[in-house]
Simulated assay, not measured.
Amino acid sequence: MSNLRKLVLQSFKKLHRTRIKVFEGDEKALTAARIKINDEYRKNKHVKDEVAIKAMVKFGEDVERELKTQVIQAREIKPGVYEARITEETLKLDNIPYNENAVIEDETTGPRPCCQDKAQTNELSK
């Protein structure tokens, strides 16, 4: 088996494993994700260009990482109350409260301070 074919199959299997983990218990999402993954790989199985294949494998890895870190499941346990299933891999950011003084009302030019700057600085320092 060629190395490229092996990479594609590993990517395919990894996406399906992640799909099962992320959408555990949600048959509708599991089915939709399975169909989408299979369709995308089937649609591109004719591609022969090595650079294009590597780019698609990289894209698959990026999608897998996004699923692991950005997607959470939430279910309503009683009216208006939801329970979220957050895993160790879920990206967790600091909740920064609104600061009305963050935007200066003067005539200075250049970039203005933003509450997101603090969040990005905190994330980089971890």
Score class of each variant (00 low, 15 high):
Met1Ile: 07
Leu4His: 00
Leu4Val: 01
Leu4Pro: 00
Arg5Ile: 06
Leu9Met: 12
Gln10Lys: 13
Ser11Gln: 08
Phe12Gln: 00
Lys14Ala: 13
Lys14Tyr: 04
His16Glu: 12
Arg17Tyr: 05
Arg19Asn: 10
Arg19Ala: 12
Lys21Arg: 15
Asp26Ser: 09
Lys28Tyr: 10
Ala29Asn: 14
Leu30Ile: 05
Thr31Asn: 10
Thr31His: 07
Thr31Leu: 09
Thr31Trp: 07
Ala32Leu: 05
Ala32Met: 05
Ala33Tyr: 00
Arg34Tyr: 07
Arg34Pro: 00
Arg34Asn: 06
Ile35Trp: 09
Ile35Pro: 07
Ile37Thr: 03
Glu40Ile: 12
Arg42Glu: 13
Asn44Lys: 08
Val47Lys: 04
Val47Trp: 00
Asp49Leu: 06
Ile53Glu: 01
Lys54Val: 05
Ala55Tyr: 10
Met56Leu: 14
Val57Phe: 04
Val57Tyr: 08
Lys58Cys: 06
Phe59Pro: 01
Gly60His: 14
Glu61Thr: 08
Val63Ser: 14
Val63Cys: 08
Arg65Asp: 12
Arg65Ile: 11
Arg65Lys: 13
Arg65Met: 07
Leu67Pro: 00
Thr69Lys: 15
Gln70Pro: 01
Val71Glu: 03
Ala74Thr: 08
Lys78Ile: 10
Val81Gln: 11
Tyr82Ala: 07
Tyr82Gly: 02
Ala84Ile: 06
Ile86Tyr: 01
Ile86Cys: 00
Glu88Asn: 11
Lys92Ile: 14
Lys92Gly: 04
Lys92Gln: 13
Leu93Asp: 06
Leu93Lys: 15
Asn95Glu: 12
Ile96Pro: 02
Pro97Arg: 02
Tyr98Arg: 08
Asn99Gly: 12
Glu100Val: 04
Asn101Ala: 09
Ala102Gly: 10
Glu107Lys: 14
Gly110Tyr: 06
Arg112Met: 09
Arg112Asp: 05
Pro113Tyr: 04
Pro113Ile: 07
Gln116Glu: 04
Asp117Lys: 02
Lys118Tyr: 10
Ala119Trp: 02
Ala119Tyr: 02
Gln120Val: 11
Thr121Gln: 12
Asn122Tyr: 00
Ser125Glu: 13
Lys126Glu: 05
Lys126Ala: 05
Lys126Tyr: 06
